[in-house]
Amino acid sequence: MLLNTVATIALLTQGTHANAVLRFGCSQITVERLDPLVNPSVNPSPHVHQVVGGNAFNAFIPETDVSQIANCTTCSFSEDLSNYWTANMYFKARNGTFKRVPQIPNRGLTGETGGMTVYYTSAYDNSKVTAFKPGFRMLAGDASQRANGGVTKWNAICFRCYSAKNFGGDNGAPCSDKTVDTVDLPKKACAGGIRTTIRFPTCWDGKNLDSPDHTSHVSYPATGTFENSGACPTTHPVKLPQLMFEVIWDTTTFNDKSLWPADGSQPFVFSQGDNTGYGQHGDYVFGWKGDALQKAMDGSCFGATCKTLKSQAFTDANKCAVTSSVNEPVDGWLTSIPGQMSPLGRM
């Protein structure tokens, strides 16, 4: 039997004294062109996102305690009213039309509707991590990136091409196996779908809850990585939990090569017009209630259960909703990706 990802992390961190690894599912709350972090109050924003978490999500989210605005969440921990979102993946058929690739729950997690798996990991060297503060928000990755570089050097973004037997997940640590992990989109058909991994910065300047580019107030380690306990730079001395997204894209229904481009090139493209994968990115607006996240990080919580946190069944989480404010189709066969206006996707 395959170990799930949490069990694998436990094995990998034995001897390094990881305090806590929260791993939990969040269903989609909306799929639309809104981005209250990069394009606040712009409706519609430039490209489509799939969003999970609390129902405070909107074109504009006030820079305040989001847990006081939202009153429900699509995540399994009911005290987590944060919002998490990524660009959507689309399939471009040989005839130039597009169809959104659905997300499915990660192996070992059940009940979610689409969405993603969220991780919060405390320091591997048993040092103190400081939970995010009310009003905190940040970005990982660069939507305009089209070549290797940037955050890829911290293993911050990667893709895993699953085999048929690993449909929906496997026991491999993120970005660890270069035979199946790539920093660009896989060039071949993946019989078990594709996993996106996005790791966020783990060091904070201790002052600013955001910055104009949504990245300058945070940093990756000065040397090494979070996993090998790399030190934070002096400019960003406060160690944060490592926030990580995993999205499982069910690409299996698009593996018919007769639908692929005639030259055999990979047919998947992210909603900002990126067919390389280097532009994959994630957005985060913190919204945990009170000191719930700090208690979880200090209390050796593990997986999707934690005695200091309140959980909810997905029958309840999936009732949480927001009203879509962008009137355009995002599903079905489309002549262009919403926001990418070139006819038949010639971008």
Rank of each mutant, 00 (worst) to 15 (best):
G279M: 06
V21E: 03
N55E: 09
D65N: 15
E328G: 14
L3G: 02
P338Q: 06
W249Y: 14
I337A: 08
T30I: 15
M89T: 05
Y84F: 15
D170Y: 02
S342T: 13
E32R: 11
A231C: 05
N275W: 05
D291R: 01
T335Y: 10
L12K: 07
P212T: 11
D170H: 03
K239Y: 06
A18Q: 13
V238H: 00
C203G: 08
R160A: 08
I198E: 00
D181T: 11
P338G: 04
S311T: 15
T225C: 03
L240E: 04
G230L: 08
P62W: 12
K178W: 06
A7V: 05
D213H: 05
F226C: 09
N166V: 00
C203I: 14
Q14G: 10
G193Y: 01
L293H: 03
F77K: 03
R137F: 04
D142M: 10
T225L: 11
T64W: 01
K128D: 10
P40C: 12
D210W: 15
N55K: 11
F77R: 09
P338K: 03
Y124K: 02
F167Q: 07
A93M: 09
D274P: 01
R107V: 07
F167I: 07
V38H: 00
E79Y: 01
K178G: 05
F286Q: 10
F57D: 10
T179D: 09
Q68V: 04
K207H: 09
F254I: 11
Q312T: 04
S311Q: 15
I198R: 02
P233N: 10
H214C: 07
V52W: 01
G332V: 10
T252Y: 01
A156D: 04
V38F: 03
P233W: 04
P237L: 04
G287D: 03
P212V: 10
T235V: 05
N208W: 01
C158A: 13
F314I: 06
